[in-house]
Design a protein around this nucleic acid. Structure first.
Lengths: 342, 342
DNA sequence: TTTAGCACTCTCGTCAAGAGAGTGCTAAAA
DNA sequence: TTTTAGCACTCTCTTGACGAGAGTGCTAAA
């Protein structure tokens, strides 16, 4: 559809605007692009590109800047798919080699690095609990009436909850319960556990019966906990410092989003449907809060085929090439480290 | 020092400014205050108060607003120390009665409630690990080479870390280690554990010797984890939406603070030195980032005498009476719930 | 000691003017 | 047919001027 020259010009408009945050003029383009044509010719082409909806005008006598459609064309057709820079790759790989205490810590660090390398906001979402599989449960008796329940998934995620008992339960009975749970639940997906256990306990009429209530509470209560913790956000400051968010209204809307993990989770959850890399620009997302932003995400697969999401949120005016290569690389590394170490 | 009338006027200046965010004029004061004096008289008094440093002028022909010193006087001498409103007390008490899975969850909820009731930012800081005391440790073997370590303090805080082993260790040896740790560390303060264990292990030349390395790693590595997690922040959005932070510069400085848990922690850690309630206004704090803010904090005591901090951060223009009574009440309730349930 | 009166100061919004940037169109050149 | 030079036109941004409005500070009288 676009001529080669139009593509070149669109490319310059996008990359110049990404750098300068200011609309780019025909004269400016004619100086940069290696076409030896005058600014008047460029102006004609710009007019055509605008007609086609790829670029726009803030006002009559201003330069051009890309529309969402323009950014989309740029990302889909004009971006040379560069490999990640050597420098960034080293930093990422180095970070993943460091020893960590838990998946939580790993993700926190990864998220920090991702935002500092891109200078945008970064976000890492845990795989959903429902798609994880049971590996082991441990009951720790703290005192007569208090139990701590520790859950471990096959992918190595660990979390804990607590149960308050109505009356003391002896250690043997707890052992019995733990063994029973570990045997029966092995490999089960977490979202099936509750129903499965209800059915299983109904069958038994032996010594386990009196533990029925406790077993159910262990599952019902302590499994719910970690849902809210599923998300690490870092570098939101980076984004709010960009010139497009100098406007108080825009910055507040975005800030409200950063303040609400629930909303963030909803936005990022969209990305889990498609495997692999996804770029969402402006109003392409159905969430109005990020209509001034672009979102580059990738799923990272765990060895049990559940998947989490990691990605970058910034203004549409972002360095797509750099961000995409980094997000892709990080998702790969993350998947590898998780399947190796946990 | 101040005459009764001056105190009345200062009080009106503070409370009017808190409500309206606009400098208050002599005419306005004369309408509100029950003194039947003219605005000219008020003006004379305002002049005197300004001379004394309690209020100031944005420019010659503007109304007055309180200085830090003025707020301080207001908080120390003019505030009627009201009890918490019945409505708020019910909400707080209700929240603390709900069943929770962990101290984490409790604090997250408390923090949410605190910010929503005050419409400021709220912050809850965990008691320092160093001031907590050892209750129990559990080692969970995930697979041949991976251990999950669960720590529980006497106040019921729970956290976990993970250790990767160089070579497999049999279950009996681990049992031995766990029993040893639980016996030897009982009641010890966490910051003494590492040195204590080093000394203790040196004495022993028996079967435990070969577990020396693992024991030390358990303590050294997995104890470090939770330091970063010690803080719950909520409602930062509330503060950034106040008119004083409409200015992009100010809002960014504050936003940077909210984005950095490390800095927040440093600021709040100041408050732990003094037991009980503390109000810090503007430049009274040595942290420039909050020189436009006021901080109302209280320590909450745990049953082992360690203490955490909870508090509210907002513009100096805040409803001190309401915030103070709420923070006090919440600290009491928090201490009570923690000592009862965990 | 209080008050009325008034000059004075500062902000804020509006308006006009001029500079600057960049476009869009036209007509000529290639 | 495509490209280009030239130029009028449009819009923003800054500056300065101006008046209205708000509120003070001072003075002199009550």
């Amino acid at each position: 559809m676009l001529t080669e020259r139009q593509r070149q010009i669109l490319s310059v408009v996008v990359s110049e605007f990404v750098n300068s945050a200011a609309p780019v003029s025909s004269l400016g383009i004619s100086k940069i692009v290696e076409l030896s044509v005058s600014s008047a010719t460029i102006r004609n082409e710009l007019g055509a590109l605008e007609e086609l909806g790829y670029i726009t005008h803030p006002h009559t006598s201003a330069g051009r800047l890309p529309t969402d459609k323009g950014y989309r064309y740029f990302v889909d057709h004009l971006l040379e798919h560069e490999a990640i820079s050597r420098d960034m790759a080293i930093k990422v790989a180095g970070m993943f080699r460091e020893r960590v205490q838990s998946v939580d810590e790993l993700m926190r660090k990864a998220s920090k690095l991702l935002s500092s390398l891109t200078q945008e906001a970064s976000l890492i979402v845990f795989p959903k609990l429902e798609s994880q599989h049971f590996k082991k449960v441990t009951l720790i008796s703290v005192d007569e009436l208090h139990l701590v329940v520790v859950w471990i998934s096959t992918t190595g995620l660990v979390w804990h909850g607590a149960i308050e008992l109505e009356s003391p339960v002896d250690a043997e009975a707890l052992d019995l319960l733990v063994n029973f749970l570990n045997k029966e639940l092995a490999g089960l997906s977490f979202h099936k556990i509750e129903n499965f256990l209800t059915a299983k306990l109904r069958e038994r009429r032996d010594s386990l019966a009196k533990l029925h209530d406790i077993a159910m509470r262990v599952v019902k209560e302590s499994l719910k906990v970690s849902q809210e913790l599923r998300l690490f956000l870092d570098g939101s400051k980076n984004v709010l410092e960009k010139p497009e968010f100098e406007d108080a209204k825009k910055s507040r809307r975005l800030f409200g989003l950063f303040d609400s993990k629930k909303d963030l989770l909803r936005i990022f959850d969209e990305s889990i449907r498609s495997e692999g890399l996804k770029v969402s620009i402006g109003t392409e997302s159905r969430f109005v809060d990020i209509s001034d932003c672009a979102l580059v995400t990738s799923t990272y697969q765990m060895k049990d085929d559940s998947a989490g999401i990691l990605g970058v949120l910034g203004p549409k005016r972002m360095n797509y090439s750099k961000v995409i290569s980094l997000v892709e690389y990080m998702a790969e590394e993350m998947a590898e480290v998780l399947s190796k170490n946990f």
